[in-house]
Write a protein that binds this DNA or RNA. Structure first.
Length: 160
DNA sequence: ACCATGATTGTTCAA
DNA sequence: TTGAACAATCATGGT
């Protein structure tokens, strides 16, 4: 069913103005994490998940990685990460879907791999309900690493 | 000396 | 469905 591609998930065309997340200061998010990091000095209630896979870089980040090099190349004097972010964001929006396509494709692949890792991590979530304060080191979970090197398929979809 | 922050957008998870 | 947080980067500042 290729027709499903048209509908992502209820286009929020109802009203864009209803977006509370407009100028969200990401800085705040650190506050939460910070509390964890700093507080962690005491008790690691928020256990550190060794399996916790880091989120895959979105198309924007993929593009940013390359953009950073270029940006720094043109502006070797710029040292503020925010500078690249702003420039990248602006540039990103300037790009057309076709331009972002390659980045999205890569991001999509990243996501696929991430999902695989998530499967393993999911197991851990299974035993999350444990109230135990401290989790005694109960042996390392034996996770069979079955490398699944599957070929990669390129699919072109003409959208838009 | 070390960790947090700043700024971008996208994606992902959890309730 | 919605919200909230985090993904990289890198110099700098605050404790």
């Amino acid at each position: 069913m290729k027709g499903a591609k048209g509908k992502r998930a209820a286009k929020r065309d109802t009203k864009d103005a209803l977006k509370p997340v407009d100028d969200r200061k990401v800085g705040k998010r650190k506050a939460a994490v910070k509390a964890d990091s700093k507080s962690k000095a005491k008790k690691g209630k928020a256990a550190k998940d060794p399996n916790k896979p880091k989120r895959p870089p979105s198309a924007f980040f993929v593009f940013l990685e390359e953009f950073r090099k270029t940006f720094k190349k043109d502006n070797p004097t710029v040292k503020a990460v925010s500078a690249v972010g702003k420039a990248g964001g602006e540039r990103w929006k300037s790009m057309t879907a076709a331009e972002k396509a390659p980045y999205e494709a890569k991001a999509a692949k990243r996501k696929t791999e991430y999902q695989k890792v998530m499967s393993a991590y999911e197991k851990k979530q299974e035993s999350v309900a444990d109230d135990g304060d401290e989790e005694s080191d109960r042996s390392k979970s034996e996770v069979d690493e079955e490398s699944g090197q599957e070929s990669e398929e390129e699919e072109d979809d003409d959208d838009e």
